[in-house]
Design a protein around this nucleic acid. Sequence first.
DNA 1: AATTGACACGAACATCTGTTCGCACGTATA
DNA 2: TATACGTGCGAACAGATGTTCGTGTCAATT
Lengths: 213, 213
Amino acid sequence: MAKKLSKRQEAMLSYVESFIDQHSYPPTIRDIQRDLEISSTSVVDYNLNALEQRNFIRRNRNISRGIELVGREPVSSNIVRIPIVGQIAAGEPIPVLEDVTVDENTETIELGPEVLGSRREDLFGLRVRGMSMIDALINDGDIVVLRHQETCENGETVAVWLRDEKETTLKKFYFEDDRVRLQPANSQMDPIFCEPENVEIQGKLVTVFRPYA
Amino acid sequence: MAKKLSKRQEAMLSYVESFIDQHSYPPTIRDIQRDLEISSTSVVDYNLNALEQRNFIRRNRNISRGIELVGREPVSSNIVRIPIVGQIAAGEPIPVLEDVTVDENTETIELGPEVLGSRREDLFGLRVRGMSMIDALINDGDIVVLRHQETCENGETVAVWLRDEKETTLKKFYFEDDRVRLQPANSQMDPIFCEPENVEIQGKLVTVFRPYA
DNA sequence: AATTGACACGAACATCTGTTCGCACGTATA
DNA sequence: TATACGTGCGAACAGATGTTCGTGTCAATT
């Protein structure tokens, strides 16, 4: 069982890997045959079986492109690519997602599920400008990742737009009695109280990170 | 362009997504047809084209399972899985990498190259314990990602072990004259000066992030 | 009422693709 | 030398799969 892979099997394995990286779907037997200049599909089939026996791949019979790389799936499937759609600053509203065009020029970041939690939809990133969120230990240049939502649970940290003040801020949100309490992450600081009508929830804070160039 | 997806198209899109997550290769048109109970493959083809036009997927003509999810593919080879090998606190040294066993039980996080920069070797993560790094805007519970190195350039933020004080700290490092200046990120605070012999560089700070569970 | 456009249907077609089989070649073993 | 075994070859088969086309439905528009 500890038998070494043949030259050809090694070549096939790394071919499959790079093919998947490149196309995001596995190759057919004939793809492998052609690109590795193997004379017959049956040779490919034979060596694929060998690779399966040694647990490098898994094959799904009678299914086209039914090759799976063992031990690879966890890495590739759960990564989320998050677009950085603008910036967040005290004095300006958060960009409206519908107005933002996300194309291949948009800066993005890739994050795994450990960082993001389970719900992976509606995520977007904003670059922090200014020191206005320093009380939440968020610095100029940091990147905050938000999940777009217009309501939230008590105690969640959310990005809110204060209509009257014309101001964006990141605070813990508490709805109590008839008013809203916005609590800075820094417990030394005093909360803000305001009318519910004045508060527009823009999204929930999912993660913050700071690249040290 | 802002046209909404039809019910069927939404269903198809999310079916494709979960199929890929589950199998690690895309579905065929007939897979979609069968599982979504659509009467004809041409209907699937039609709606797949609609999805392509709106840039949710990319189709590769004439090849089986030639569906790619837009914004999902780049998720492949450039992701780095970083082990979280321990914790970092003021009063204890950083775990020595050689002593740490990284196995499948080790907690890890996956991050893309935008977050990590180009050099992707020798990275490891530590969970921050305590508030001792609050002056660097790093909170209890944050995760810091370091690159293991024992030297650094002036001005880089590094994790250092102070031999005499028996203390770990994250500071900007400056070698000047015959001494070392360790500058807190918070410019309000005073630097520490010490002998070069007293300073052991543990690694360079690459990124910090804070999951809001 | 007529027209148009989006969407759906069903069947047929042409490849694409995995599988199988008989045969051959070399090396190690008996 | 004979045998077994791992590996390679080429061809053929059968089913899987993407594509196309004529037709139909329905709601909005003219």
